[in-house]
């Protein structure tokens, strides 16, 4: 059931994306609002799924051990990242070209006066500060799980 739905969504998105274009911003944009909405919903969905994964693994007694703890860490961080990305997209949608100086160059700047949105945009652009640690957590988690499983198999 879910896979069918996903397929529908994906096709819809692709169709939408291909058929609707808009003026390109300096930053990555999603064109017509539908694409943006879908993207944002996807972030929410993803965050939700990660929270669910976190909650379920904590709740399941068989999934105990350091490996799973790391996975839970990954879930939390990555869920946060999704919210940050979501916020970033939202913030960007409120900005216009006037808010930037020397756009698309190494000297790119955000013009003052600074308001909440501009600062938010600036912070959220550094989303990889969450993304990478999350991935690191995932890697460590899997490595630990693998090591444990390998040890068990040897027994």
């Amino acid at each position: 059931m879910a896979s069918k739905k996903i397929r529908e969504i994906v096709i819809a998105v692709l169709v939408l994306l291909v058929t609707t274009t808009d003026s390109a911003w300096a930053l990555q944009s999603h064109g017509a609002p539908e694409g943006v909405y879908v993207h944002q919903i996807a972030h929410l969905l993803f965050a939700g799924a990660l929270i669910y994964l976190y909650w379920h693994t904590r709740r399941t007694p068989t999934l105990a051990g350091r490996g799973w703890k790391y996975l839970q860490t990954f879930c939390i961080i990555f869920a946060c990242w999704n919210i940050v990305a979501l916020a970033g997209h939202e913030a960007f949608s409120f900005l216009s070209a006037e808010d930037f100086i020397d756009k698309n160059s190494w000297n790119e700047r955000i013009a003052g006066p600074l308001n909440f949105t501009k600062v938010l945009y600036f912070i959220t652009k550094m989303d990889h500060l969450l993304f990478v640690p999350a991935m690191l957590a995932l890697v460590i988690s899997l490595r630990t799980l693998y090591a444990d499983a390998a040890r068990e198999e040897q027994k």
Binding site: A2, S3, K5, I6, I9, V10, V13, L14, L16, L17, V18, T20, T21, A24, A26, Q28, S29, H30, G31, G35, V38, H39, A42, H43, L45, F46, G48, A49, L50, Y52, L53, H56, N82, N104
Partner: peptide, 30 residues
Amino acid sequence: NEMWKQLSPLSGGSNTMLMISAAAVTIYYH
């Protein structure tokens, strides 16, 4: 810029799709 304008939706769309896929996998897992 123009090239990016062409590629941007694809990238974004692909990202969206993959996020949804990942979420779906997670939910399926349940």
